[in-house]
Every structure is written in C-alpha cells, then in structure tokens.
C-alpha cells in the first residue's frame, strides 16, 4: 500500500516542512502520494508534483479548503486514508491542528512528531521535552503520523513529475469559519528554515532591547528567536518562541543571548549544529550544551560581536 503525505500550502506553493515529511514517508515505502487540499490550488498541486520521490498528487480543490480549517480537512483525510498504510504531515501548527482530528475520526492513535522510522510500524518520538526518546509500535490499521522536520532532510523541491489526480471534496462541515490572519512581517528568514538563529531570553530585559539582536541577526542573515520566558514577559510575539511548546529548530548556528537554558527551551534547540551562549551567569545551564560559552554582559558583548563580525567579514 502507498503512503500519503498531507501537504501544507500557502500562496507561494508548498510549505517546506511538507518535503521533510516526504523524506520520512519514503523511509517507510517508496510509493508516496501527496494530498493537496485548497481553493484554486492548481499551482500548489503542480509544485507538489515536482517534489522528488512523489508518484502521485491528489488535488482536492474546493472553497472549503481555502484556509486549512481542521474540521473540513480532517473529513477529507478520512475519505481517503483507508486506501493508504500511512498518512503523514509535517508537525507545523497546521499539521498539529488537523491530523489528530483525522486520527480520531478513523479511530487511530496518532504518533506525534516522529524523529526516526525504525520500520513500517515502529517509530521514535521524543517525550518529556526531548529528555527521553520513546520507540513505539503501532497496531492501528492506518498509521497517522506527524513528522518533526528537523529530524529528516527535505526531499528536493524539483526533479519529480508525478501525475495529478482530482479528488472529490468531502464538503463543508459548517462548524467553523476563517476571519483573518495577521502574520508577523519580517525580511529575515523563517525560524524553522534559517541557517543561523539569534535568540533572546529574559536577560534581554525588554522588547526594545531586542534591537541589538536584530542588528546581529541582519549581519549574519539570521532569524530572530526567543525563549518562552521572553515571550511570557511580553518582549516579543509567541511565533518567536523556540522550545517544547514553541518551535523546534536545528540550524547550523544557534546564538542564545540572555537565555538561562530551561529544559523546555533546550528541547527546541539542542539539535543545532553549533551553539553559542552569552550570559552573565556563569552557572546558567545553557553553558552545559553550548560549544562556545561567553560569560559576560550581553549589552556589551552583542554589539561588540556585531562589529567584530563586520570587521572580519570586510577583511576577508
């Protein structure tokens, strides 16, 4: 039986985490189909068809799917899931919203945020903020899975030439309606896709002080993130949050500034390739996971770091 991946789409095409889910799907079975649900989504279906390794695209084009409302999309998944051995989605806010609803409609116990495929029935998933890894074996007929993107490389966006098939809509449930979206405007890369992230914690003291992190980030072409403490304190919006209850990231370089390193924050960034910590408290737990720790006043160190990088880069 084939494996189905539910695509997340936006106006620009297919959201990148979909391609990480395709890689996880290919680790289960090499016959992978993608479901694209949207309104006027021919463009997105075309983009999905080009993803390397995908053999078929199911396109459900209906106004009911215009904004990814869980009630409607879950019914659509239910209508096709029994023809598949597995249904996967990236563990984004979209995937986390829709997939458990579909699982319950199918009487299936979902496996959340897998980080490894052992075999077609057995998967590894982090629990307790990543402080333990559980290997679980599912006895359900259809496996419903969300995929942690940082654990799987994305499948190539180009190279495939899957056929596109129309799928009948499962209709409008009428339970919910979409009013609007207020997206954080930024010229910087998206947190989960960034190669470098500069994050601030409670030590930043205020939202205004994040300006020094933004300067550093812009120098490095980095995204700006934050700890839960900084979000709790109202310094920055919640979509900046890195951690167990925010985003999970694994960039090449993660610079933690004024972040003590609570368990819940480490859960979101400890798989980064290189970690830098800047904190005035020498005992802060963040130093235990940092490759390079700098003990000192961040308000002095960060601007110094920005100008040092600028000097060295222009000298190259």
């Amino acid at each position: 039986m084939s494996v189905l991946v539910l695509a997340e789409i936006d106006a620009n095409g297919v959201v990148p985490q979909t391609r990480n889910a395709v890689t996880a799907a290919l680790a289960i079975n090499n016959d992978v189909h993608i479901l694209v649900a949207g309104s006027d989504c021919a463009g997105q279906a075309g983009a999905a068809a080009k993803i390397a390794g995908v053999s078929k695209v199911l396109k459900a084009d209906d106004a009911a799917y215009a904004n990814g409302l869980a009630e409607n999309v879950a019914e659509l998944i239910k209508s096709v899931a029994t023809s598949y051995s597995h249904v996967l989605v990236g563990a984004t806010s979209f995937g986390k919203n829709v997939m458990p609803r579909a699982a319950a409609l199918l009487d299936v116990q979902q496996i959340s945020e897998i980080t490894d495929v052992v075999d077609a029935e057995t998967f590894v998933r982090p629990i307790y903020a990543g402080n333990a890894l559980a290997t679980v074996k599912s006895s359900d007929a259809v496996k419903i899975i969300t995929v942690r993107a940082t654990a799987f490389d994305p499948a190539a966006a180009e190279g495939g030439s899957a056929q596109i098939e129309d799928l009948a809509s499962a209709g409008e449930t009428g339970l919910s309606s979409f009013n609007g979206r207020e997206l954080t405007k930024t010229e910087r890369p998206e947190l989960t896709q960034a190669g470098i992230i500069v994050s601030g914690g409670r030590g930043m003291g205020s939202g205004e002080n994040f300006a020094i992190l933004e300067e550093l980030a812009d120098k490095l072409g980095a995204a700006v993130g934050a700890s839960r403490a900084a979000v709790d304190a109202g310094f920055v919006p919640n979509d900046y949050q890195v951690g167990q209850t925010g985003k999970v990231v694994a960039p090449e370089l993660y610079i933690a500034v004024g972040i003590s390193g609570a368990i819940q924050h480490l859960a979101g960034m400890k798989d980064s390739k290189v970690i830098v910590a800047i904190n005035k408290d020498e005992e802060a737990p963040i130093f235990a996971v940092a490759d390079y720790g700098l003990v000192g006043d961040l308000f002095k160190a960060v601007p110094e770091l920005t100008s040092e990088i600028e000097t060295r880069k222009s000298a190259r």
């Binding site: 409302l69 984004t92 806010s93 979209f94 009428g174 339970l175 919910s176 309606s177 979409f178 009013n179 609007g180 979206r181 207020e182 997206l183 954080t184 998206e190 989960t192 919006p237 919640n238 979509d239 985003k247």
Partner: peptide
Amino acid sequence: QVTREVDGGLETITVK
C-alpha cells in the same frame, strides 16, 4: 471568536 497562535503569527476563526 478565537485568536490562534500559528507558525507565522496569529489567525482568527469563529467556531460554533
């Protein structure tokens, strides 16, 4: 009427 925290920011929906 519920404001939701989504990946890129906020989203507002109305649920019955």
